[in-house]
Amino acid sequence: MSEGLIASDAALDAEQREILEPLVDTIVPASEDGRMPSVRECDFPGFLARNAPDFLPELTGILADFDSGFTTQPARLRYERVKAFSERTPESFNRLLAQVYGCYYQDERVLAAIGLGAGAPFPRGNTLEPGDLSLLDPVLKNPGTWRRHVT
């Protein structure tokens, strides 16, 4: 188990932490081309402690659904089990998904890999290409049936 995952997690016990890592890894695994990390590398427990401590009791309940055998199962079987869980308790799974994606899509490496800057959008901002206004030529050439001339 990575140091990062357990370092900032006081609320989960060792067994829960051991289940959490493959669980979130099943939801967002690393990409095959190696460009995208797995969420397990993004300090999910630390994210929860900072951003959503209220979710911890629910997470504890979710983890109880997965026994320790889960950690040693091959990825395909783990996926089947998480899928079965998501179908059985879709609302709870959606809340987990919102947190997992919340953590993942704020991680600097992830944002850089999808071409975004890290941190708050303001004051960094974004650059947009101005666009080619000569594209309006056909509109201007059209005699203009678009306006009803009334006063």
Binding site: G131, L135, W146
Partner: peptide, 19 residues
């Protein structure tokens, strides 16, 4: 700015001859 987004949609409107 229209950006790429605006240019892309503008292309669609132009091909249809629409305002």
């Amino acid at each position: 700015p229209l950006g790429r987004f605006g240019e892309t949609l503008a292309g669609g409107f132009n091909r249809l001859g629409w305002h």
